[in-house]
Design a protein around this nucleic acid. Structure first.
Lengths: 341, 341
DNA sequence: TTGAAAGCGCTAACAG
DNA sequence: CTGTTAGCGCTTTCAA
């Protein structure tokens, strides 16, 4: 199969490549007659401009990079989905790479994207990311970056986040509203802002309701595994025989909690209420079904792309860049692991 | 920030761009001394070759396209993961696109990839794909394609598949070995080869064990939803009061089955055994845990990329192309929704 | 309304 | 061992 190029079209039509190029782009200085001729031949030959040549000239690839901590996770799958959709609607394609929650990987993957000259990068920080030089270098180098979900306050760029504080506050408030008084919290690793914020939201809700904060009710789960929840249950009820709710920072761990409670013949929600976070698919099919907080990944992905897209346009037009921070609202999804209001 | 180009390095060093280019590529006809000079300057300037120019010259993008029917699915997330890993190990990046199980989308997404001049495409057919012209056009156009998971026998290209027939055979045999005699099968949509093969495997196992095949024991679930399994249960036990096993073509549906059976106070596996397919994450946390067939998505992704990579090399060297079909072995994962052997 | 020409940054055949 | 040169396919300025 021959590659159809501008040159080929030009020569069979007896015009110059410049004319063909302009005709195809509907420049006003080409006659309608020529445009028609060019367009129809281009169509019949199934002409596709060579994207390499275009990119080389225009200095843009129309490709963006997306870095995800772990893909095998319902929330991030949804984000990927949202990014891809929004991107293709606007003529962009997306290269996905995984950081596997590793700082080294994160740096390396950013480099790979840079080598491919992506027009911008969407990034969710790995849990292990300890400094932000690599990201600031991007920004200084004029590669737009948008941070999503796991962000850092100390990086100066556009961001899209869940309002984790508010979400955790609402979840805790919901537990309190349904009569819970001694609420344990299983929190995530100390580093990422998301788990910090969820913890703060939890604490705040207690405070607002005049429930004294008891730090021994806070348990840390460093890894995001089902087993962790399963294993923590015994510790929690040994430490606090009268605990009446467990609020976990993520559904997966809450699921482990649920299963262990059942094994221990503790009735959910009558004896202990359980609240998750994320609204993973699995929360619909646990037994009892898991009350949780919906974290709209798809929308977050779309928004993240949109922010990047805006920056790309601003840069192209040499307008002054302003960074935006979008907070996405969440809502509590009551199911059967909590009592009725 | 200035872009560092070959020209810049050449001029500051007082040599030609050709020399710089060759030095960086470690050509044997450049002196060690020059190479050292060039390399050290390149490093200190953080020189990154312009990928557009390289691609334009070399006629390859080092990017491959991956089309996935639905990402929010544990199996496909794993495949994506495997593809990305294998690709980056070999210097390739991957653009992911979703067909959403739609034929139109599938065609459009392939076109998008073509416009970006990807070096090859990894494709899992959508359930709705009815003809293969768009794929054959690719192959004729010398764009290597590897079909994975949902394939078609009538497309002549490399493929990587689960041995679905064998897997379903083994799963059914397992049920028979544990004493089941009247095994219902919930099969998927009529079109994709995977669900056809799983059905065939089921039938074959009955035959080998001299259990007469009863087509009223086969139920079709056209969509891959939890609710479908949930809803089919009543119909199955109404139709066949003495059914003692349900083999579902996918875990999600089996999970619905499990939950409904529990609601109906039917003991699993004592009264009815349940076997899923795919070994989704969720099968580990249902209650009882779900026996299933492991479908190694990650490995499949890796293999798919490897096949594509081989073809790319073969084409580059003008060697004769031979298509390979790789079958990935699966194994039954016994858990608590089936009886012990 | 059209075309010539330059150039994006890189590679490789060829000459010196 | 090094440099000259042509060219990948496209866009865009400037001249005709």
């Amino acid at each position: 199969m021959f590659k159809v190029t501008l040159k080929k079209i030009a020569s069979t039509l007896g015009v110059s490549t410049a004319t063909v190029s302009k005709a195809l782009k509907d420049y006003p200085d080409i006659s309608e007659k020529t445009k028609r001729k060019v367009r129809s031949l281009a169509k019949s030959l199934d002409y596709k401009p060579n994207s390499f040549a275009q990119s080389l000239r225009n200095k843009e690839s129309k490709i963006i990079g997306l870095i995800i901590p772990t893909i095998v996770h319902h929330f991030f799958s949804n984000i990927l989905n949202g990014v891809i959709d929004a991107a293709s609607e606007n003529g962009y394609l997306v290269i996905t790479l995984l950081s596997n929650e590793s700082y080294e990987d994160e740096k390396n993957k950013i480099n790979l994207l840079l080598e491919k000259n992506v027009d911008g990068i969407l990034l969710s920080l790995s849990d292990k990311t300890v400094n932000y030089k690599h990201i600031n270098r991007l920004i200084d180098g004029n590669v737009p970056v948008v941070l999503y979900d796991k962000i850092s306050k100390s990086v100066n760029c556009s961001k899209v986040i869940i309002n984790d504080k508010q979400a955790a506050f609402n979840a805790t408030q919901y537990l309190i509203d349904t009569g819970c008084k001694k609420i344990a919290h299983i929190r995530g690793p100390l580093k990422p802002q998301t788990t910090i914020d969820r913890f703060i939201g939890y604490k705040k809700a207690l405070e607002v309701n005049n429930i004294p904060f008891d730090k021994t009710l806070v348990y840390v789960s460093d890894s995001l595994s089902f087993e962790n929840g399963y294993n923590l249950v015994l510790k929690i009820i040994n430490d606090h025989h009268d605990v009446d709710a467990i609020f976990s920072f993520t559904d997966l761990i809450a699921t482990g909690v649920l299963i262990r409670l059942k094994e221990l013949d503790i009735i959910v929600p009558d004896q202990i209420s359980v609240m998750g976070f994320s609204n993973w698919f699995l929360s619909k099919i646990t037994s009892p079904t898991l009350s949780t907080v919906d974290q709209p990944g798809y929308e977050m992905g779309r928004k993240a792309f949109t922010l990047l897209y805006n920056e790309l346009n601003i840069i192209r037009n040499n307008e002054p860049l302003i960074h935006e921070v979008i907070e996405i609202a969440t809502k509590v999804i009551p199911r059967n692991s909590t009592k009725k209001k």
